[in-house]
Amino acid sequence: MTIDLYGFGPALAAGALMTVKLALTALCLGLVLGLLGALAKTSSYKPLRWLGGAYSTLVRGVPELLWVLLIYFGSVNAVRALGEFIGMPDLTLSAFAAGVLALGLCFGAYATEVFRGAILAIPKGHREAGLALGLSRPRIFSKLVLPQMWRIALPGLGNLFMILMKDTALVSVIGLEEIMRQAQNAVTFAKHPFTFYMVAAVMYLGLTVLAMGTMHVLEKRAARGFVRRT
């Protein structure tokens, strides 16, 4: 069985590449934000705890679609001010950058909770042992807490990444040419909405399978030393 794509095959493939690029870039930003959010939320300093809590509550309470639209249209003045400050007065936020910011922000808010859970799951004794050994706090964090946190947080982060990958479809509304947008272009040009949206759906499924496979490998690697050998 062959499906006639009316010459939109390459466009859809380019869309898939854009989707992957967007998802991975937003993931990097989201991981950093999530880690910072979790550190703030578990901090012993009250204003920081409050800030971390406000970040994750505010961002998670508003639809992702609204964040995409708000950041794309709402960042104008802030970006212009920044542009003038660094000497590039014509600086604007591209659809890609807006998409990365919006999706990274949302991923980070959920990742804050995942990382926080992981930090709390690490026995207090480990940190105390580190202190007793005379390790500095940053060293305890990077050598003791972070590697263990990674293993505990990985499944949760994997789920969030699957959600992130599907949320990339929302960035089509600000004109970024990812899978969804390319499918819409194809429908405008060649009709057959069911065919093109189904092809797009299958492409997302393929990406999901790929991500699931990667997660499986990562989880296995992270669990080294925790699996009982028989």
């Binding site: 599907k166 069911f194 759906a201 999901t208």
Partner: peptide
Amino acid sequence: IFFFRGTPLLIQLFLVYYGLSQF
């Protein structure tokens, strides 16, 4: 579950709304 969790809701909505009426 695999299909509905693996594809964006936006696509599912377009499939049902614009896609099905193709037939």
